[in-house]
Design a protein around this nucleic acid. Structure first.
Lengths: 234, 234
DNA sequence: CCGTGGCTGATTGTCAGACAATCTGACACA
DNA sequence: TGTGTCAGATTGTCTGACAATCAGCCACGG
């Protein structure tokens, strides 16, 4: 017992990491932006070693990229990366969908709840970031049907990369209502046992997401060529 | 061009991490063994901060576990963990198998080559560790059929955990020849387009692996209860 | 006898400061 | 145009330090 009594993680590294993550998702730091150790250290008010650990965490999560002897920078997803991530998600989520029948009731309920939460969020006209989070929660719950904590972790990492990409292109504000009904349709296919159709619908949905993401990247090619270091504005 | 010309990573952290990994896979460090920072630092001859980074890497890979304020120790897989990992592998690998038809020729060849390499290794009666590595390479190549680098990384992490568990129970020396033919059968099912049968065979194989691993763990329950700190031998 | 509380040593988490190695960009030079 | 050199910036690693936290032990009191 008493398991529910645990204070928030008071680790300094954890707090710094969380702050950086927030800044990334919020779009305050554009992809390609270098994350200098000394600058961040004195700016946040912690030691360089602490910043170093936090940056390593971000790199491990795929949100930042480290080049030896040149430091870490905010990850800039290329079209190739988006394809990679979406392919991974398709594999994970359709594997989950295929296991709907053998999943536990809790796992199924998690999907339904995520769907409802998404619908509520869409109806209440929340912020784009919140909407994206709620949307991705449904897909996370699909992976949860597999029943592996480790796969849930990788699903989280994949979703984090997507959120990073979406932070720069929140113009994907297409009809949220439409998205809700599409996902509702997907879940009802699962519930009625039409697995093959559900998998097809899921793959169709992900293909669409991939296309819009790749288009967005091509429209604003913040590719591997880091923004030139210009002292003035452009 | 010139891409193939890159020296070995000369990073100290990388070397230390590699050394620790080797010790783990070799079974020199039993699960539960604490990895003390100062001790390792002066033993290997590097600074504590360097050891710290290396340990963080191991923790990120799942090979070690960190408890706040109590340090990191070699991961001890419980039966629950083995189930989790095997479930994840089943999802990834059968997803790969299902995509055999749409995979590129290179990806298919990777599977065939891994199979041949395994057969050669088995015939040459190599070390158990080498045999396990060759075996896992086949399964890795199956995940490769999906075409996502990120999923390959998670497959590597999962396989590393399995290798860690196998290091303590290399009594799984059952007939290697039998294993080879089982995998050959699996690949030929894929090549002949009998996907559903291949997936079934794969899941059967993984279920067997899970069972033997769980049995081994129960036989030698190096569970979460870390070995008491006794100054003398037992 | 058993639970409580406090003490001690060991270990981690974080900090400060230092220095060599490496990379970038600019500049001089052929 | 292409090459060599140099200064500045930044990382990778080291040393040393200290407070916070934890495990084990022991005394105390019910």
């Amino acid at each position: 017992m008493y398991e529910s009594l645990h204070v928030e993680h008071s680790s300094t590294v954890e707090r710094v990491t969380e702050e950086l993550r927030r800044a990334l998702f919020e779009g305050e730091l554009a992809p390609g932006t270098p994350l200098r150790e000394v600058a961040l250290a004195e700016q946040i008010g912690v030691a360089r070693s602490t910043i170093r650990e936090a940056l390593s965490l971000l790199v491990a999560e795929g949100l930042a990229t480290r080049v030896p002897n040149r430091g870490v920078a905010v990850s800039a997803l290329l079209a190739e990366d988006v394809r990679d991530v979406l392919r991974a998600r398709a594999a994970l989520e359709s594997a989950g969908a295929r296991q709907w029948a053998t999943a536990t009731v809790e796992q199924q309920d998690a999907v339904r709840e995520a769907l409802d939460a998404f619908a509520r969020t869409a109806r209440s006209g929340a912020s784009p970031a919140a909407l994206t989070a709620a949307h991705l929660d449904i897909h996370r719950a699909l992976v949860g049907l597999i029943g592996s904590e480790r796969l849930l972790s990788t699903a989280d990492a994949l979703n984090a990369e997507i959120r990073l990409a979406l932070a720069r292109v929140d113009r994907v504000r297409r009809n949220a209502r439409e998205q809700v009904s599409a996902h509702r349709e997907l879940v009802s296919l699962l519930e009625s046992g039409r697995t093959a159709e559900a998998v097809r619908a899921l793959e169709h949905h992900l293909a669409g997401a991939e296309k819009s993401l790749v288009d967005a990247i091509h429209r604003r090619p913040h590719g591997p060529a880091a923004p030139r270091h210009r002292p003035d504005a452009d």
